[in-house]
Amino acid sequence: MSSTRPEPVQVIKQRRDAALEALVAGVPYIQWLGIRFDRRGDELTAILPFDEKLIGNPALPALHGGATAAFLEVAAVIELAWAGMWGEMEAAGTAPAAAAARLHLPKTIDFTVDYLRAGLPRDAYARARINRSGRRYASVHVEAWQDNRARLFAQGTGHFLMPEAAGQHEA
């Protein structure tokens, strides 16, 4: 049994927030869309703040289906990478550098988006759930909503190829 004292909460939070930042901040497309991540322990919520450039149909107006698809896919990819780096980060006690964090990014094999209702011109939120994560392949489901958590405006399922370099660390 280890007799070391638990880490101070601020040290833990700083490490986890820095690791998430390392993963997300350097990806230009995530920054261009304006996607941010809210973290509670290991639970991530992706946030897409409303912006005029996300509009598809200006007559309604409604979010572009492509912007919605991209938001869901980003939420799924970051969830997988985050889950993949969590154990290593906690064991090391330090946040990885950006380049090391991005080694955990999986490649999308396919992604299916189910458009349930028009995306309104306001902020959107998404949470991803890893249904299966193996050495090579993963299956992830994502739900997105706006005002009401129970009223999804889109959902998606994707299959992903796990990065080989990152997988080797997780023996």
Binding site: G26, V27, P28, Y29, I30, Q31, W32, L33, H64, G65, G66, A67, A69, A70, F71, E73, V74, A99, R102, L105, T108, F111, V113
Partner: peptide, 27 residues
């Protein structure tokens, strides 16, 4: 466009931007 890059190590465009193009072409 460099703003649409998904992997800064390689400069490869993010799949989401290609999805948006395919969605628009489909519509």
């Amino acid at each position: 466009d460099a703003r649409l890059v998904g992997d800064p190590a390689t400069g490869v465009i993010h799949g989401g931007a290609i999805s948006a193009l395919m969605d628009t072409a489909s519509g």
